[in-house]
Design a protein around this nucleic acid. Sequence first.
DNA 1: ACATTAAGTGATT
DNA 2: AATCACTTAATGT
Length: 216
Amino acid sequence: MIENENQIALIKEQIGFLFDKDLLEEIYKVGRLKKIESGDIIMDPGEEISYIPFIIQGSLKVSREKDDGEELLLYYIESGDTCAMTLQCCVRKSKSSIKATAMEDSLLLMIPMQYMEDWMNRHASWRQYILESYHVRISELMETIDAIAFMRLDERLDKYLKDQAKLLGSLEINHTHQQIAEDLHSSRVVISRLLKQMESKELIELKRNKVILKGF
DNA sequence: ACATTAAGTGATT
DNA sequence: AATCACTTAATGT
């Protein structure tokens, strides 16, 4: 049960417009808030899922992961979003096949999944939200598939940096070359070289653990 | 000062 | 574009 005035105000502000009043009341009743820190893993492949997470504040990165730890970034989710893969898991009562990591300190609203079906039947705004959410997610998946299939790695890297900056609202990206390589499913050496190239074109500035975008 | 981790580079496939 | 092998630079203890 969420009773704190400030928390309710915050939820209302971030996702209130998505749902009708009755549903919001129910959300306050059964939901609970969870703070997570940058880098925390929210969901791991194979994990049973018993709640649906909504992002109230911050952002998560959703990636596919092989058993040997190799990764590929699928898309990001931010405030007002939920994770489509989670929804799918709830319906089919299957296990997660993706990994979600916090990109910054974030706040999640957790809804136990047993309400899913009931709300689908009783609340039009919930139905619509879920449908819309699938739609957006699929579009984003398409975009990353296009990027992998049709873009050269240097273009992908450029897009990656810009996406990252936009999402975090900062031109300073605090990632190591290794982490960037993992997101793009490439190797550290290759990323280092491409970044070096961009630096010599004065597009970016390189520091340890940091990439600074210039002039966008 | 030393160890550890991140980043840079030439050569090879 | 990836991998290897090695160097150099930055940072923590």
